[in-house]
Design a protein around this nucleic acid. Sequence first.
DNA 1: ATTTTTGTCGATAATTGATTAAAGGATTTA
DNA 2: TAAATCCTTTAATCAATTATCGACAAAAAT
Lengths: 207, 207
Amino acid sequence: MKNNVTKQKVVDAASSLFFQKGFHGTSVRDIADRASVNVSLISYYFKGKQGLLEYAVTNYYEAYLEKIEESLEKTEGDSAICRLNELIFTIIHYKQMHHQLTCFIQRELSLDSVFVREMTVTYLAKENYYLKELFQETIGGSIGQDEKRYLFMQLKGMLITPYILLSDWKDQIVGEYAHEQFVKKYTKSIQKWIEFNTNISMERKNK
Amino acid sequence: MKNNVTKQKVVDAASSLFFQKGFHGTSVRDIADRASVNVSLISYYFKGKQGLLEYAVTNYYEAYLEKIEESLEKTEGDSAICRLNELIFTIIHYKQMHHQLTCFIQRELSLDSVFVREMTVTYLAKENYYLKELFQETIGGSIGQDEKRYLFMQLKGMLITPYILLSDWKDQIVGEYAHEQFVKKYTKSIQKWIEFNTNISMERKNK
DNA sequence: ATTTTTGTCGATAATTGATTAAAGGATTTA
DNA sequence: TAAATCCTTTAATCAATTATCGACAAAAAT
């Protein structure tokens, strides 16, 4: 079973190249070259370039949702804000561990294709549901529906910003523990934002 | 001089397609078809597909920076926070008026190519400079350098979020004045965030 | 031990995409 | 009106990419 090692080499090469040049910007030759394997293996293992993409992205999201559900189970019974904070940590942590794919997928998601639509209904809908549910509960019902929507958008924005403005902070992520450091600090900065917004919400309720 | 009308048709078609399918995902034929012109005109007017891209993006950024500089001149002498608020309004407004190109460029900017690097040094460096300058002044010197960096990243994130999470809010932007509505509301939500963070900063200074 | 399955390679077919050359209209300028 | 410039079309070329085929070796199963 030398199968797995070659297959993984291809996936790794593809992830890295998709990240650099985008899906349409990289050819199967590029991928095969970087992985030091023959071009035809890509068709052999994945039924072509599109298949390779689907394989990589599906894997990414399966594991992602698993982490999210794990986090939610672990914190069951805790206060909403605690659970939300933990969830955010989990999300940022996962994204950071796979930052190349994260960035690539985020980029590709803003395109208009059947594949994107499939991913959206299959995975993103769930992610959105979990997040929204918890956010609603945390923020309470004291602010307007409209305002809440904008806040939620801001939150979602914060969860993806580092992987879009990569060039702005990648110089900070060097060295052994840099990733963990970043996850901690960035998570904290989001949590501070949440705390502020729940306070706002409390104040209004009390008066 | 029927030149301009055809040229513009091509640019419009290209913008729309680049937005939907990305640069590498759209062929010159697609563009020509949508613009109802002959394929070779693209080479004739823009020296090829790459040239068309450069033309569109350069135009976008030239006008963008002009708006920014205009805004800064207009508010000269006002308080930092006022100027920042006005600048943010200007930026969101411009982006909203060209949301397809905004989204497309934002996406393309996370790629690794010589073109992207050129755009970065030519235009984004300036944008970043103006924004950072004003942000520093607004937020004051009372919080740590590190913390400030994260806040600045959050701010920049807020300025691009709507154009990455397009699918999340595009259903809200329907009807005649929807764009203006959105600009107003979204700008306000960012301004609220700024206000909060300057207060934080003040409090610490006072104690 | 031999048959079957699995993994790998080189070559190539088939498709698609970008660019150019040449020439005919149209429009402006002299 | 003639010349020059600009716009547009047709057709062809050039380049690159993906997918597939057939051969071949290694490993597993019988």
